[in-house]
Design a protein around this nucleic acid. Structure first.
Lengths: 109, 109
DNA sequence: TTAGTATATGAGCATATAATCACATAGTAA
DNA sequence: TTACTATGTGATTATATGCTCATATACTAA
């Protein structure tokens, strides 16, 4: 059986994973990997409402994925833990495997 | 603005991330990293109902994270893409950073 | 055949998440 | 001061997710 500590760890990890698990948030991370950006530019880049983007950003800040600083009127967000980007190389592996599986299926027809 | 292709890619990636983003599913992945297991043993190990575990497993199979084979009455699940485990090393980095941030806060009191 | 075991799944309910709109706040600039 | 801009947030609604119970399916063994 799982220990209490392990249970707690898995819950923390799930919180972080959840904070990544949304298409717009992934788009934001992908945009921020090239450098920090303000809310308005992020919103324009991913094509979503500012209020919506603002909420997604705060989800990721709360999860510890992003940091921010204020500069005049603007709030500028940046990736806090660059390894998040590595996560997507694994996700890509999963996607590639899916494609291979589909090819197998096709050939079997 | 984002291309249609990028949008689609981010959605696929989000699906995969979502499939990981649950404490019980993370516990399952953690259990399976040491080798394939049947539903009943997984359920016992993580301390959850079989029907519930069965659902979580099918979520991960659909996402392409797990594969399975049938052996008599049992269905045996295994990790399909071992790099999923690496994902957690990044998550751990985020958690460690959170701890460091909290320590900073404490010292500032 | 019957009984038993492992797994999967439909229905129902509770909760969580996401998007939108309207409004509030905070800084800038005239 | 007023007007403007960037951001954040409360309220609402729609949708998604997760859990439980009951039931269905499939295999085993007597």
């Amino acid at each position: 059986m799982l220990s209490k500590t392990k249970r707690l760890l898995f819950e923390k990890q799930a919180e972080i994973a959840k904070a990544i698990a949304h298409p717009l948030r992934i788009a934001i991370v992908d945009f921020l990997k090239d450098g920090e950006q303000c809310v308005c530019d992020i919103a324009e880049h991913i094509g979503a409402e500012r209020s919506n983007v603002s909420r997604h950003l705060s989800v990721m800040v709360n999860a510890g994925l992003l940091g921010f600083r204020k500069k005049g009127l603007k709030v500028i967000y940046k990736l806090k833990t660059p390894c998040i980007v590595d996560f997507f190389s694994c996700v890509s592996d999963v996607l590639k495997q899916q494609v291979r599986d589909n090819e197998k299926l096709l050939k079997a027809l």
